[in-house]
Simulated scan of single mutants.
Amino acid sequence: MSIKLEAGVFPKLLNVDANINAIIIGLITVGLITILTIMSYSFEDISRRHKSRLYDVVLGLSEGAVVVISMILVQHIFKALNAGSSANWFYATTQMTILLYSLYTMQNAVIEFVNIIAPLYIFGHHLFEGNTGYNIIFMGALIAMAITVIYIARNKNNLLNDEWKYIALQIIYGGIWWLIIWPIYRFSPIRTIYIMIGFIIYMWIIRFVATWIRNSFNDYNNLSKKVNYDELTRVRNRANFDEVSAEIFKVYSKNKEIPLTMAMFDIDHFKLFNDNYGHMAGDKVLQHVASEFEHQLFQQTTRGQLFRYGGEEFVIIFRGLTTDDATKVIKYIRQKLINEPLEYNGNELNVRISFGISQLHPSDRNFNDLFKRVDHYLYMSKEAGRNRLTVEDRTFTFG
């Protein structure tokens, strides 16, 4: 018994131009998936560090915008490769892949909204052609799409860990799209099956590539954190400070018109926190101070970089800020710490800090000259009674 395959499906596989176009689109799709993956993980890291509702909204809108731009880009590429037409099953499959992948990768409501309205954006103009039957199918499919998207978004981790559920949701998601597309292009049932199989295979390839990218990104990120970040406070460590300080001295010693200021601070009577409340309390104080400084430095100026130098000592490098500018920022953050004391096991832990601040001088032969001066100013603040600020050899009490 012979099986008669649909004419026109497999001959296209032998079409050189079609295959080249498919390869081009495939490579572009992989590139877009790579960009979406890196952006998603970068944005997650930013959101995790700053924990701000405003940041989440801005980042979510940015992710949604990139997905929409990717869809528009794919549309124009297909039109360029197909003499101005985007009526192609591979085009629809590529759009579905980008949308479904973004839904699994990016965790915000904007991406859910984009997935739900995408059919309306791509095929909504057919609603005005007066085909009542199609309009009913389209609206029903749009409702089904909304339910499916919301389900995937709420259960993405479970779906990614269960291969059969992942395949089932791919079929449902793709099936809804083809329910919308079929009345327009009138693909035969056998061709629709081929297309659905192609979509599933395509998504598995993309998933494999994306997983490799994700794992590589995580491995690099974890290695970078271990090497450059303090495990307790999650800010940059002494090793990273030594590396950065050598680099910035080369830059700022040659560009003397651009200021470089360094501040060093020490938590006053830190040992008492450990003695009175236990070492866990001391760790909480370090985390509290580091977190507050890291957050506020980003809020006040993007030019401040925080390092844990050792023990209860921290260093801030201000690129492009004078001592006056840096002092204003530090006073603001210090006051925030005073106004918002740390609560620990029902106790209010009041943290006080001593500072030393200096700007890079033309006479500094290396970064160590600046460091020694700042370290000496910090010592002056502590000798004067702690809870002080010493700027360029002058010690002040906080008002």
Rank of each mutant, 00 (worst) to 15 (best):
V315K: 00
G64T: 13
H376A: 15
S381R: 03
P362C: 14
S253D: 04
L59R: 04
V9G: 08
I180M: 07
M262Q: 06
I258S: 14
S47H: 03
F123P: 03
L100H: 14
F241I: 01
A153I: 01
A65C: 15
R388G: 03
G310L: 05
E231M: 05
H50D: 04
Y379S: 15
V58A: 15
F128C: 10
N276Q: 12
Y55Q: 12
I20P: 01
K12T: 02
M39S: 10
Q305N: 15
P119H: 04
V149H: 08
Q359D: 13
L260W: 07
I147R: 00
M145C: 12
L61W: 03
G385N: 06
F208C: 01
Y220M: 14
I152V: 14
R234Y: 03
E257Q: 11
L223H: 12
H76C: 01
L342N: 09
I150R: 06
R154P: 02
E6R: 05
F241H: 02
R373P: 06
H279L: 00
F187A: 14
P11K: 11
K12G: 10
I150N: 05
G84M: 08
Q107L: 10
T97I: 15
D393Q: 09
F367K: 08
R214S: 06
N82V: 06
F318D: 02
I181L: 13
F273C: 02
Y104G: 09
D266Q: 07
A246H: 08
V351A: 01
F273I: 04
D242E: 15
L142C: 07
Y220D: 07
Y173K: 12
F78L: 09
L286N: 11
N21W: 00
R334F: 03
R334V: 03
V289G: 01
I176D: 00
P11E: 11
G84C: 12
D242G: 02
F10K: 09
Y166C: 05
R319E: 13
E383S: 14
E340N: 13
G84V: 03
I353T: 10
E243V: 08
Q75T: 14
H126M: 05
Y344S: 09
V244Q: 01
I333A: 04
I176F: 03
L342V: 06
T233I: 03
S381K: 02
L27P: 01
M380A: 04
A87Y: 13
N387D: 14
G356I: 03
R214V: 05
V227T: 06
R48Q: 12
S224P: 02
P11C: 01
N218R: 12
A146E: 11
G124D: 04
V67M: 09
R236V: 02
D364E: 07
L103V: 15
G399N: 15
N222Y: 11
K256N: 13
H279S: 01
R308W: 09
E313H: 03
D324Y: 04
M1N: 10
R236T: 09
N131L: 04
K331T: 04
F355H: 08
W204M: 04
I267H: 08
Q287F: 00
L120K: 05
G84E: 06
Y332R: 13
I267Q: 07
T301K: 14
I317H: 02
V110L: 10
P183D: 11
I143H: 08
G60E: 09
H295V: 02
H50N: 10
M71P: 00
L360T: 11
F208W: 09
I200G: 07
T261G: 02
K331G: 08
T322N: 13
F249W: 04
S52R: 03
N88L: 15
N345T: 07
D162E: 08
